[in-house]
Structures are given as C-alpha cells and as structure tokens.
Amino acid sequence: MNVLQLKKLTKKYGEFAAVDQLTLAVQEGEIFGLLGANGAGKSTTINMIASLIPITKGEIELLGKNIAKNGKFAKSNIGIVPQELAIYEDMTAYENVRFFAGLYGLRGPELKRRAEEALAFTGLSDKHRSYPRDFSGGMKRRLNIACAIAHRPKLIIMDEPTVGIDPHSRNYILNSVRKLNEMGSTIIYTSHYMEEVEELCTRIAILDHGKVIAEGTKAQLKSIITDQKEIRIDVRSATGLDTRKLSEIAGVRTVTVNDEQNSVSISTDAEVNILNRIIQGLMAADIEIRSVEESQPSLETVFLTLTGRSLRDS
C-alpha cells in the first residue's frame, strides 16, 4: 500500500520550476531516501508534502487522500523533523513536546503520556524539565525529533536530522529511525551523509533539477552503473601522491586521494583490467601498498555519475 504518492508534482517560482512533474510513491513501512544536491528540489518537495507551501500543479496523496482536499487529515498524519532545529529555547523539553503535540488535538492525560513517551524514546526523559539552551547539539536534535513524533504520525519526514552532531547522538538518532520504522512509521529520510542513506534506506530516489532521475533499492541503483568499477588501494602514506600519472593510464576515469585515510580510490572502465598498471604506477612513485580492494560502484559514485556532482560538495 502506498502511504504517499506524488503525481506529476510541480512547483514553479515564476518561470523557474523548482520541482518539475515529479512522480514517485512511498510504500507503507519503508525508509525512503531522498537524495539530491542543493537546489535539486528536495526541500521544495518536502515542503509541499508537509503543506508548508502550495502546489503549482499535480497531486499529493497521503493514505489515498488528496492532501489539497484533506489538509487537516494530511497534517495530522505527518510528522516533520526540519533540517534546522525548530524548538523553543525558552520552554523546557517537556513543554516543547507537549505544546507541539497539543496542536494535533491531543489533550489531558493522553497528551502528557505521549509527550513523556516521545522524550523517553529520544533518551531525554531525565532532561524533561531542562531548557534546550542548556542542551548539547545532539540533545537538541533528539528533542527536534521528539517534537515530531509525539502525535504518532503515519509518515515522518526527516530532513538532515544528523547535521552537526557528535557520533554518539548520531548513532542514537539512526537507531531511533530504525525503531520508529519497526513501530510502523513510514519514513522519508534525506541526508548529506551517503553512508547513512545506504545504511538506513530501503529505497532511494535521486533528484536533480526538480526531477527524479533514478529510483529504486540500493542494488537497483548500483546496477545502473554497469560500465564502471571501483578500486580502493590502502597505502602507507598518500601524502604528496601525484595523481596525474595514474589518470593518464587508459581506462582510468577518476582518481581520488584520501590523505586522512591514506587511501587512493580509482574508478575505471568495467571491461578493462588495468590493476597491474595502477600498482606499477604507485610503486614507481615509491608508494608502499598495504591492500587492494576491487568493488562495484558505491551509491556515492552512482550519485556522482548521475548528477555530475558530489552530494557533500553540492
């Protein structure tokens, strides 16, 4: 069953189409990844789904109902975790969750219970009387999530929920997303961290210039890039490595050096076997090789190939 269906969704600002005839479906129980560079139309799409901005053309159906005609129903069944923190610093964590949950019609003991549950879910039970101004970045992010889930929405939209937080809070949030999904919520997840999307999402859509340019499971997306393979070589020290000579080898498409990890990632044509020439090139440059790994293209490579841009650099 489709929880969400976008039908030829279009949003225009003057002549510019931020979202252009976008059609996709999100099924019940999915964690659906929405990938796109800045300006690809991701946020505009999310804003239209959450009824924050009007639609120029097309239709959005939530649980089979057109949201333009069933605004209250749609809003009541959606929870949004905005990219930026959207909490009141002058209200305690509990008051924040209680206030936002109250806007969804919850009252009395039910409201209190749901607010406490949401705080417990995000690991903030012991901080429910504290003010967010005294919270760490990770705790604020968790409160941001708690405010979106207390009313138990069918669809949760998470827009970059792990931006700028410590690894502990990041892991907590990723686990929370999984738990929410297990509890029955369908989730739309966007992130600049490709590994998060790869780890969490069951299906992914890649947006570019307001359109879906690829959609499917991770395996399906990776299979799009059939003419390419990846070679990762770990070395003792990659500092000062001249990549030009490696790039000149016939069949090499891109060479990326990671100084921090002391590794070289080389993307090559799938049909050629040039591993020996690459290794010889590195040895000639006095680079000590520790390991070599040949693999299928990563989601990052798929994104780069399809959009011509890196997700984090965009």
Binding site: L52, K75, I80, P82, A86, I87, E89, L103, Y104
Partner: peptide
C-alpha cells in the same frame, strides 16, 4: 528565525 514556523504550519491548525 527559530524555524518553529515550519512546525506550526505543518500542524493541523
């Protein structure tokens, strides 16, 4: 500026 406008508008009010 607090981005809470997003939450207010996303709620059924």
């Amino acid at each position: 500026t607090r981005n809470t406008a997003i939450r207010l508008l996303a709620s059924p009010i």
